[in-house]
């Protein structure tokens, strides 16, 4: 305690304090953040909320999507009909506002610049321009009510080819990729299926019903909890590429080392 007190005037102490403070507020903020409340849509939104949403939209989105969300050619698509669900997914996962043009917008949960209320206001405003899918109701997000086995069947047919059979993501064409689904909020998984962000196709309620979407969430949460792990290190569950990298570099190096040691003369 006394040694800590003695160092409190060191210039490093300030840096350390800054680092810790930023880390903790960042993580705590990210952990609490889920985005708009379940069921958010333009219906029943107050005039005040719509006004706040419009202000936020003009300040943060309009430069690419146009002042009335009509789209701006290459810079950004029209947001008519994307719905509150798409806005919540893009903004609450940190994909939008896009930090820089690139192959695709990346999930960046520590860079969400808006509070839940602000995301909700933004979502109802965009939804009020031309309605689209709403933020899902709470009942469809509860993994404990889902059937993980059926969810696995739906997942393997519709999702596994891009997101990997263990939900850890994979490569697409020309630098695009399907992100990992591990550690993703149930609400965002549901919204992604419903709205088809970026390269991902849309899975509407006629294709995968809300019950089946909940089953998929239950399946993903069960493998997140280790239901697929039968022991040993998963090496990221990336499939044969990760395993081969491990075997061919670390494994074979160890064998060569052992062979050299065996062949040396004892003295």
């Amino acid at each position: 305690m006394s040694s800590l007190a003695a160092r409190r005037r060191s210039p490093l102490a300030l840096l350390m304090l800054l680092f810790l403070g930023l880390t903790f507020t960042g993580t705590a903020y990210a952990a609490l953040q889920t985005g708009a409340a379940p069921g958010t849509s333009a219906e029943g939104a107050s005039q005040e909320q719509l006004g706040e949403g419009r202000q936020l939209f003009l300040a943060n989105c309009a430069s690419c999507h146009g002042a009335n969300a009509e789209g701006n050619g290459e810079a950004g698509p029209s947001l008519y009909g994307v719905g509150a669900a798409a806005v919540d997914f893009q903004v609450a996962t940190g994909r939008m506002p896009l930090p820089a043009p690139g192959v695709q917008a990346e999930r960046n949960i520590s860079q969400v610049h808006f509070s839940d209320e602000q995301i909700e206001a933004l979502a109802v405003y965009v939804d009020s321009l031309a309605p689209g899918p709403d933020v899902p109701e709470e009942q469809w997000l509860d993994a404990s009510q889902g059937d993980a086995a059926n969810g696995g069947a739906v997942y393997r047919t519709n999702c596994a080819m891009c997101h990997n059979s263990s939900g850890t993501g994979g490569a697409l064409t020309r630098g695009k990729y399907a992100p990992t689904l591990m550690g993703v909020d149930a609400q965002h998984i549901y919204e992604a299926m419903l709205t088809g962000p970026q390269s991902m196709p849309v899975f509407n309620d006629q294709n995968i019903t809300p019950e089946e979407k909940r089953d998929v969430i239950a399946f993903l949460k069960s493998i997140e909890d280790g239901a697929n792990d039968q022991g040993g290190h998963t090496l990221g569950s990336l499939g044969p590429a990760g395993d081969a990298l491990f075997a061919w570099t670390i494994g074979i190096l160890a064998f060569i080392g052992a062979a050299v040691w065996l062949g040396r003369k004892a003295a």
């Binding site: 739906v154 519709n158 088809g196 196709p201 849309v202 899975f203 294709n207 995968i208 019903t209």
Partner: peptide, 20 residues
């Protein structure tokens, strides 16, 4: 639809969606 077995109306296939 695989695996649920539901039949598909033409109107269900919205642009951007994919059915297996």
């Amino acid at each position: 639809i695989d695996p649920s077995g539901a039949a598909i109306r033409a109107g269900d296939v919205t642009q951007g969606s994919v059915f297996h």
